[in-house]
Design a protein around this nucleic acid. Structure first.
Lengths: 203, 203
DNA sequence: CTCCTACCTATACATATGTTTACTTCTAAA
DNA sequence: TTTAGAAGTAAACATATGTATAGGTAGGAG
């Protein structure tokens, strides 16, 4: 049920290209002309099927109201930038959202992900500088040594994460900083997610 | 000539919101209803002015063919990723384009800009690692000490740029690498542009 | 063969939508 | 006061566009 025919794929691609170029969707007759068809019916059939199969969304009776759902090529998703979070969790409360930044969809699932502005130089040797933005995928555990966002009490921090039995070590990437060590029952500490990308703006 | 009235701003905002929500533009009558107007004329006037003032683009006679140019809030632009360029200039030949990455429009003008994949560790102390992507704004000159993309013969390199009279020095940010020094008439050397942002994907 | 689907032509209809003409009201600048 | 622009009402008009009806052809599955 999922697969589309070659022809349907051609139509879908044309729709995507058209939107890319004009930033509005083609009309049925636009598509008709492009493929040199002599009737609008064929085009509507294709669109109907693309809608059925979940590739397109449409508002019936409305001009140029096509929306591409699954492109199978690429797309852009908007990821919220949560400020330099310190106190005031939960992280994703709407009040904390400063902005939305575009991310390539081929970076994988972006649902739930968010950007966080890094505060301080503690990760400088991992090439993460003060003010850089990190893209965070929320997850309760990370692999040994991965760079993670960790919540300690009301503070959020970015560090390399290690766990030895019930001891948790958060290692900065800067010799001027000391490792942070916790024991399980010690404090309210929790892995928020894993750092997936780094974005820095110069100038 | 540039400024828009409060009412026009309201209309523009509504158009942006509508597009965000539906991913296609509102019709004139959609706007009319939203503002509780009893004629389409007023709306068309507003749109005409927004077009005149460069905030909107429109295909006349075409349904829902509005395109927001200047949002004054935010937008997304796509910037081409030129591969790990070495030989094979000119840089922006279409064959070199690997992909397009989304960039926030509030990063300024993106016309002509491109992403470049950095090769090697020579800028490691500027927190630019092997494989990182740098966003480049083409420009023939850069300020003293700025990080620039420089073309030497058929190779492109990312370095800190200095010029002393007719001597050009390209300084790596890694003690293991030696500065590169050129004289004006020495070789075919040219500043391609300035590094404006750094993007790194982990995992 | 028969049935079904993908794909297409031909023609027509209904309405969604951009455009226009003619006026009115209000505010601010000259 | 006069003038000009912003904002809006009213009533049409023209066409761009989605939708529907009636078939037609080709190929695969049963």
């Amino acid at each position: 049920m999922r697969k589309i025919t070659d022809r349907q794929k051609q139509v879908l691609e044309y729709i995507c290209d058209f939107i890319d170029e004009h930033s509005y969707a083609p009309s049925i007759r636009d598509i008709q002309k492009h493929f040199g068809l002599k009737s609008t019916k064929g085009v509507k059939d294709h669109i109907d099927r693309l809608v059925d199969k979940g590739y397109l969304n449409r508002k019936e009776g409305t001009a140029r109201a096509l929306k591409v759902i699954r492109d199978d090529t690429k797309a852009i998703k908007k990821v919220p930038l949560v400020g330099t979070v310190a106190a005031g969790l939960p992280l994703l409360a709407e009040e904390n959202i400063e902005d939305y930044l575009p991310v390539s969809a081929d970076m994988g699932r972006t649902e739930g992900m968010f950007f966080l502005r890094v505060n301080g130089d503690s990760m400088i040797n991992a090439a993460i500088l003060d003010g850089d933005l990190v893209l965070v995928r929320p997850q309760p555990f990370v692999e040994q040594g991965e760079i993670a966002v960790v919540r300690i009490g009301d503070e959020a921090t970015v560090k390399r994460f290690f766990r030895f039995d019930s001891r948790i070590e958060l290692l900065p990437e800067n010799p001027d900083f000391e490792p942070i060590v916790y024991w399980d029952e010690d404090e309210d500490i929790r892995v928020v997610g894993k750092v997936t990308a780094v974005l820095r703006t110069l100038e």
